[in-house]
Simulated assay, not measured.
Amino acid sequence: MKNENLKSVWNDQANSISIDDSHAFLRKAKEVERKQKIGVIVMVTTVTILIIYAIAYFPTQWNWFATGLCLMIGSLAIRVIIELISKQKKLSKAVSLNAKSYVKYLQGYYRGRKTIHYVITPLCFGIYVFGLIQLFPYFKQAFSAGFYNYLVISGIVSLAVIAIIIIVQIRKEMLFLKGIQSA
């Protein structure tokens, strides 16, 4: 979201949203936008690493290792595409609507994000975890017992941390939705 564009739209509008309300709204919107951007960057980085790993270690015959890698890459890629499309739609509306209409649009936008958060994200996360699980038997054969145990433990801890981050981000977006519904 272009903060400058939103400011100019708000400043050009004569409506019931006060300047103080618009500044608070812009700060919250910018914070949510920043967190979404960080999430996309992390997912794109992970997809890139997985693709590099797949290129380097993709088996000559199709097996569960290849399936696991493809599931992991595909689930993250789908999630990134959804985020980028969602962000682009929101940006295009930011400059074309007046302040009241944009707030109404954002209310609908964040209600629509509930589907992404409560259906698509858990599905993508589950597919990612399933893909990762498919790699572990191959890791067990390829690595020492100590390193394999490290991979299992760090994988579980990483997935738990990622799940917590996802849950916190979803809660923040839903709180933002609740805040703009009263606007």
Rank of each mutant, 00 (worst) to 15 (best):
E83K: 15
Q88A: 14
G68L: 03
I78L: 15
T67L: 13
W64C: 09
L91W: 12
I82A: 09
P59L: 07
I81R: 09
I82Y: 15
T48I: 12
G74L: 11
I52Q: 04
T60Y: 15
G68A: 00
A77P: 03
W64H: 10
I51V: 11
A56C: 06
G68P: 00
K89A: 08
K87F: 14
K93Y: 10
T67V: 11
L69D: 00
A77E: 02
S75R: 05
W62H: 11
L84V: 15
V47P: 02
Q88D: 14
K89F: 11
W64M: 11
L91S: 13
S92E: 14
C70I: 12
T48A: 09
I85E: 03
Q88Y: 15
M72P: 01
I85K: 12
F65V: 04
I49A: 11
F58N: 07
T60N: 10
V80G: 00
I51R: 03
G74S: 14
A56G: 06
I49G: 05
W64L: 09
S92D: 12
I85G: 01
K93S: 08
G68E: 02
L71W: 04
T60V: 13
W64Y: 12
I52A: 10
I81P: 00
I49Q: 05
M72Q: 09
S75T: 05
K90C: 13
L71T: 03
K93W: 06
C70A: 10
Y57R: 12
I81Y: 09
G74D: 00
I51M: 13
L91D: 13
K89S: 06
L91E: 14
G74T: 07
I51H: 01
I78G: 05
N63G: 02
L84D: 02
R79M: 15
L50D: 01
K93H: 13
W64E: 07
A77L: 15
L76F: 14
T48E: 01
G68N: 01
K93F: 11
A66Q: 05
N63L: 04
Y53S: 06
W62F: 12
G74F: 08
I81E: 02
K87A: 11
L84S: 02
